[in-house]
Simulated scan of single mutants.
Amino acid sequence: MSNSTQQIDVSLFDRLGKTDGITRIVEDVIQAHMENPKIQAIFIPYKDTPEKLEVILQHTVDFFSEGSGGPVVYKGRDMVTTHKGMNITPEEYACVVDDIMGVLGKHQIDEASQNEVIKILESLKGMIIGQ
């Protein structure tokens, strides 16, 4: 069995480091969003409400854990409801994706896993942009 075949047999959840790894990735992504001048205005206000930030962090970890094949159940709102009224533009969404991909690289997530994450993000795009 080749290495690439073995990798496909392992869930994305496992390849992202399970709950602990996904938590570290999400924390770094949120920090990257807060430092990104093109989208930081969306995220910086959460610094003043750490309890809201913690809820967002947990929901995001659960969402990506379940979506990547982990034994986690996401109990938050659907993507349309979550992003309603935010009016996220395609450019802002691209910045979010860029931040996520940069963090995955920083965490040395392999290219195949990064490509799976991109597919997930692409599948969510229509539920987030322009809501």
Rank of each mutant, 00 (worst) to 15 (best):
I22P: 02
S68Y: 05
I128N: 03
T49I: 08
G126D: 11
L124T: 08
E122N: 14
K125C: 09
S68I: 04
K18A: 13
L12Y: 01
G102W: 04
V10Q: 14
P45G: 06
S65L: 02
I128S: 02
I42S: 05
S65E: 01
G70R: 07
D20C: 03
E51R: 07
E27S: 08
L104M: 14
A112C: 09
E51Y: 09
G76Q: 05
V117S: 03
G126F: 04
I128L: 02
V29C: 12
L124N: 12
I30Y: 04
Y93C: 02
T81D: 10
L57N: 08
H83S: 09
V103P: 07
I100H: 02
V117W: 00
L57W: 05
P71M: 11
M86K: 11
A41F: 15
L124R: 10
G102Q: 07
D28K: 14
T60Y: 00
V80Q: 11
P71D: 15
G76W: 02
L16C: 07
L16G: 03
F43E: 00
D99I: 11
F43T: 00
K84W: 13
Q114W: 07
G69C: 08
G21A: 14
L53Q: 11
T60L: 03
K84E: 14
M86L: 15
K119T: 11
